[in-house]
């Protein structure tokens, strides 16, 4: 018996069909408001989906922006070469300027020497021995040497590294200045307490934070 035979045999059972129909009529009625609840659920899941998509989009955009920023800021193969070329050009220009300056100085010296010689000839003075000035020797560019920082990054690797190094130097300078100021203030304060210069002398701190002993009557700073 194949599928069709079974199907036909089953389908033609009118009594069973009627029984199933009656059985189905007894089942629970469809609950009211159920479809509205489903629509609300679907709306919620739709909102969640949109929110998730928005979040993912934002994260992707941020990641791309961060990646672009990193690519732009971090030195890579191409930019290192460019930076070295840039540094070379600067050093070469500096060397050229130096050579030109040397040549000019030499020319001036020679001129002066010749004037002196002329004077000596007129005055029958013994001829001075003219010092032979050697032509300017081209120096090797200094900047080609790489100065590495504590982390091993070359300072002249890129303009950004030079900027960072300069900023760090400025910060160091400020720290040293503050330390010196503090030491100086401590010394002045201690000296003033141990041996005050006069009765009208007072300790005054100026805008920059420096302590000074001022004579109130004369309105002058007293050097301790």
């Amino acid at each position: 018996m194949n599928d069709n035979d079974i199907n036909n045999k089953l389908r033609h059972d009118a009594q069973l069909r009627e029984a199933v129909w009656r059985h189905e009529q007894q089942s629970s009625p469809f609950p009211t408001g159920l479809n509205e609840r489903v629509m609300q659920e679907v709306g919620k899941s739709e909102q969640n989906r949109r929110r998730t998509r928005h979040r993912v989009g934002m994260m992707l955009a941020l990641t791309s922006a961060a990646a672009c920023l990193l690519l732009f800021l971090l030195p890579h193969g191409g930019s290192t070469k460019e930076a070295v070329e840039e540094t070379k050009t600067i050093v070469e220009t500096m060397t050229e300027t130096k050579t030109i300056a040397k040549t000019e100085v030499m020319a001036l010296v020679e001129e002066k020497e010749s004037v002196d010689l002329h004077k000596s000839v007129v005055g029958k003075k013994p001829r001075k021995k003219v010092r032979k000035i050697e032509p300017a020797i081209e120096t090797k560019p200094v900047a080609q040497e790489q100065y590495a920082d504590t982390l091993g990054n070359h300072i002249f690797q890129s303009p950004e590294n030079v900027l960072i190094a300069m900023k760090m130097l400025e910060e160091c300078d400020a720290v040293i200045r503050n330390e010196l100021q503090e030491v100086r203030n401590n010394v002045i304060d201690a000296t003033f307490r141990v041996a005050p210069p006069s009765g009208s002398a007072i300790l005054v701190k100026d805008i920059s934070g420096d302590l000074d002993v001022v004579d109130r009557e004369r309105q002058r700073i007293i050097e301790l």
Binding site: L10, Q15, L16, R17, E18, A19, V20, W21, R22, H23, E24
Partner: peptide, 25 residues
Amino acid sequence: VVLLLEQAMALLPTAEQMLLSLFYY
């Protein structure tokens, strides 16, 4: 017969009731 079949259907497991429902209803 229809009434008896209906009574008998209630005694069937849910999977079998579901199959009958899909096929006949």
